[in-house]
Every structure is written in structure tokens, then in C-alpha cells.
């Protein structure tokens, strides 16, 4: 799993990296909406060009972006196969036993896969160009209105920040425990599923214990640093939209508009008909 890049931050100095994290979050939201509205091949082409353009603007190697797809390759194959087998309508290409593969089925599963690829590429772009901390700030910033209905957004943000902060520590701890048990002759990839699950206990139990200890110590550290002792809390970081942010949001909206317009107004080109 080491060379899967999904969810990692890719440090670079680019216009995309410099955008306000809230912009990028909203941008990604609009992008996802757009994907669900695509209908025509023109729409797919449009979204693909759009995604590739942002990748270039973000100065991230295409190879790195493609690697992020590795994480979902199984999901991808699974949806494709499922769609090929269960799509019943249309011209039959191959038929055996109870299974029927149709031209429309192939086409449909292909477009589904394309949609998934575009989705992963776009969302991983968000994490490639935004640090987890910035993302937390963005979520806190965008959710701020929730405090009027009694939700403590700050606590939520602190929890998220701590969670992000501890992911690498716990990963390291897990690797250490796995190594230690392997050194005692443990094998984690043999036997049936029950055996495998049982073999995980010598990893999970120490991991739980150490995580609880961590949580305990962290709670003390938070108390020692006056967390939640006073309600006159201040904030060092204030997010500010710049001109480029408004421009980026304008393009995002324009883009969604075009995709929706494409879906509503443009006549769908009958690709299957053309192929025939």
C-alpha cells in the first residue's frame, strides 16, 4: 500500500496551493456536483479537460495523480463487472448460462468507471494541494453558522485537528507492533479468514492500550494548556478570501452551469448508434 498516494499532501508552490482552503473545499463540492450531472460524452470530455487543467495548474506530476487511483482500483473493477453483468437491455453481444452482456451494458459500465476516476482525481487534488490543517480550518470556517443552532464548531475542529495530528503517530506505532510480533514468529497472511482475524489480536490489543494511554496523556496536556478554561478564546488564523478565490469560485459555478446546461439542452449524441 506504500505507493498509494490518495489522501496525501503534495508540497508545491502553485496557484492552486495558494487558494483559500474554503475555496478549494467549495470548488471540490461543485466539481462533484458537476460529475453527477454529466450525461453527454461532451460533458465527460469537458470535465476531464477541466480536471487535467487543474492538475497542471497545481504542478503535480500526472503520475502521482494516477497513483491515487490505485486505492480504488478494486472498487473500480467491481463496479465495472457488476454493471456489465447486470445491465439487461440493449443489443446482446455475448450470452451464456444466465449471463447476458450487452453493448449498452459495456458502454454504461465504461461511463460509470470514468465517473469514478474523475471523482477520485478531483477529490485527491483537494488533499494534494491542501494541508490537513488548512482543511480543518476550512471546515471550521464553513460550518461556523452551525453555532447558532448550538453545535460547538470549535470543539469539533480541535477534535479533527488532533485526529489528523495523530494519524502518523498511530501508523508508526502500528508498524512497530507488527514488526515486534513478526519478530516473535507471527504470520498475518496465512490461514482462513477466522485465523487471520485471530492473528490480528496481538496487534490490535497493544494498539488499543497505547491509544488509550495516548488519549489520557493528551487530555492532561490539553488541560495543562488551559483548554476550555475560559470563554474569551481568540483565534490566531483568520481565513481571508482573495481575488483569485472569487475568480476560482466564479469558474467553478460557471462550469457546473455549463454541465447542467449540457444535460438539459443539448441533444445527446447517440454514440452506440454511431458505432453500429
Amino acid at each position: 500500500m506504500k505507493d498509494v498516494t490518495f489522501g496525501q499532501y503534495y508540497p508545491a508552490d502553485s496557484i492552486v496551493h495558494r487558494l483559500d482552503p474554503r475555496t478549494k473545499l467549495l470548488f471540490t463540492f461543485f466539481y462533484i456536483v458537476a460529475i453527477f450531472f454529466i450525461k453527454s460524452p461532451l460533458g465527460y470530455a469537458g470535465v476531464a479537460v477541466y480536471a487535467v487543467a487543474i492538475i497542471f495548474a497545481a504542478r503535480i506530476p500526472v503520475r502521482t495523480v494516477l497513483k491515487s487511483l490505485k486505492a480504488v482500483i478494486f472498487l473500480l473493477l467491481f463496479t465495472m463487472i457488476l454493471n456489465v453483468f447486470f445491465y439487461k437491455d440493449g443489443e446482446v453481444l455475448i450470452e451464456f448460462w444466465k449471463i447476458k452482456i450487452t453493448v449498452e451494458g459495456l458502454f454504461f459500465s465504461f461511463t460509470m468507471a470514468l465517473r469514478l476516476i474523475l471523482l477520485v482525481m478531483g477529490t485527491s487534488l483537494l488533499t494534494f494541494t491542501t494541508t490537513p490543517t488548512a482543511l480543518t480550518d476550512a471546515i471550521e470556517g464553513l460550518l461556523k453558522p452551525l453555532k447558532y443552532i448550538g453545535i460547538n464548531v470549535h470543539d469539533l475542529a480541535v477534535i479533527m485537528s488532533i485526529a489528523l495530528r495523530f494519524i502518523p503517530s498511530i501508523q508508526e506505532e502500528t508498524e512497530k507492533i507488527i514488526s515486534a510480533q513478526k519478530a516473535r514468529g507471527a504470520e498475518f497472511d496465512t490461514g482462513n479468514i477466522f485465523k487471520k482475524a485471530k492473528a490480528m489480536l496481538p496487534i490490535l490489543i497493544p494498539l488499543f492500550i497505547s491509544s488509550f494511554r495516548r488519549a489520557d496523556e493528551l487530555a492532561l496536556a490539553l488541560d495543562a494548556r488551559c483548554y476550555n478554561l475560559s470563554d474569551k478564546r481568540t483565534k490566531m488564523k483568520i481565513l481571508k478570501y482573495k481575488k483569485t478565490d472569487f475568480a476560482a469560485l466564479f469558474y467553478a459555478l460557471l462550469f457546473v452551469g455549463l454541465i447542467v446546461a449540457d444535460r438539459i439542452f443539448l441533444v445527446n449524441i447517440d454514440i452506440i448508434g454511431l458505432l453500429r
Binding site: T131, P132, T133, V158, S161, I162, L164, R165, S169, R214, E217, L218, L220, A221, L222, A224, R225, C226, Y227, N228, L229, S230, K232, R233, T234, K235, M236, K237
Partner: peptide, 27 residues
């Protein structure tokens, strides 16, 4: 108070954010 395990007393993934945590809490 500075604790034993350096890993278990940091709340943020970026140095300046972590340092700001205490001062923010005391306003």
C-alpha cells in the same frame, strides 16, 4: 507543564498552530 512523550502533547500538525493553542485558549 512539559510532558514525557513529545508525541502526546501536540495538538496541531503545524508548529505555529500548536504554539498558538495555549495563547488562544487564554484569550
Amino acid at each position: 507543564m512539559v510532558f514525557q512523550n513529545p508525541d502526546n502533547q501536540m495538538v496541531a500538525s503545524i508548529v505555529e498552530d500548536d504554539i498558538a493553542f495555549g495563547p488562544e485558549n487564554i484569550g
